[in-house]
Design a protein around this nucleic acid. Structure first.
Lengths: 191, 191
DNA sequence: GCCTGTTTTCAGAAAATTCTGAATATTCAG
DNA sequence: CTGAATATTCAGAATTTTCTGAAAACAGGC
């Protein structure tokens, strides 16, 4: 005790703000990286989100200590994902980027995109995998018949589950769907 | 074409079965690795799941071409996650492992576990991050007041969203919850 | 066209993650 | 308790992923 000046009850000093921003960025980056999203990509998004206004490449590079190349590629991914958009600032030739500010929309987009990129291809592959073992005729003959049948049953169980999820997500996550909010409302209800 | 004997309409040859198994394992491994789960861990789980019976460490090592150390550590993670369990085979000193076969239960467990390990700590950290900038008094004075307020609002939006998810998951994913199936049923309903 | 400021690309460097294998520990039968 | 079988650990190796930076491409303005 001492040192720290007691001065006023300013809501938050500039330094505190800055520190909190960095904390947020780093938390978000860590979360991203544990869910298979490159840490820097999550951090760029976090910074744009928390700052809440468009930033240009140089500001991002400086703010996160990353290279121009990295910034460029990361921003491209983020715009392809649809959670960051390019804008222009009049009187400045640089490009500016800003993050989607609506959290519901943000997660909806992320879920939709991941489904499209990762789940859908898996589903298709699983189907073809199943069809490769499923008996072509209705008749079972070989000694492997039983084993094959069990395996098909297991894959089917998996597929059935994933199709259920698919149907739900088409309804709530899809581009023309009812939105995550509706889903949350339904789930929040009594029974 | 020749070579391949036309012989009978056996549902699936041993070789086909084997190939499909490997395909499944590799698909699952890939999916896992794009969601931040070590490829081998997902593969071990996939193999146990698709095979549907307990396997010992040596079988797994041979089946996936991994080292004993890797197998040991991976199996430990999987049992800690609660989606693989140890069993003993009478008359054999080796330990055997088998995967949860109920897909709903499987995903429920995975979701619960990831929430516990990744989301909950994030939530707590976000709270403390928010509290660090929130004006201590009801009064706003400094020049940063506005900026700080906006930032708190953004974090709050995020927290609000996550708490909603939390509440839902406590209800459907939690150990004593109603289960994913109920959630799916609710979401599948008309409106 | 040419010049200037800006963005993109991508081969190789750096970093992070995952895996191996030999040493160590454990378990259990006798 | 002893010894054989099995399981775990962890430092360093191998691999995969991510990042850098300099060269190339682009976009206006003149």
């Amino acid at each position: 005790m001492a040192e720290r000046q007691p001065h006023t009850k300013t809501p938050a000093t500039d330094r505190e703000l800055q520190a909190a921003r960095e904390r947020f960025v780093s938390l978000w980056g860590q979360m991203g990286s544990s869910w298979g999203i490159p840490r820097t990509m999550a951090e760029v998004h976090a910074l744009l989100f928390i700052v809440g206004r468009p930033m240009n490449t140089d500001e991002l590079m400086a703010g996160l200590g990353i290279s121009r190349g990295n910034a460029s590629m990361t921003l491209r991914s983020l715009t392809e994902w649809g959670i960051v958009s390019r804008t222009r600032q009049r009187g400045d030739r640089k490009e500016y980027f800003e993050a989607e500010q609506d959290v519901w929309k943000l997660f909806r987009t992320i879920l939709r995109e991941r489904k499209k990129r990762e789940v859908d291809p898996l589903l298709e592959a699983l189907h073809s995998c199943r069809d490769a073992v499923r008996p072509k005729e209705g008749r079972k003959i070989g000694p492997e018949a039983g084993e094959a049948e069990e395996m098909v049953a297991r894959i089917d169980q998996m597929l059935e589950f994933m199709h259920m999820i698919e149907a739900i997500s088409r309804r709530f996550i899809g581009p023309d769907g009812e939105g995550l909010e509706t889903a949350a409302r339904l789930l929040g209800r009594a029974s």
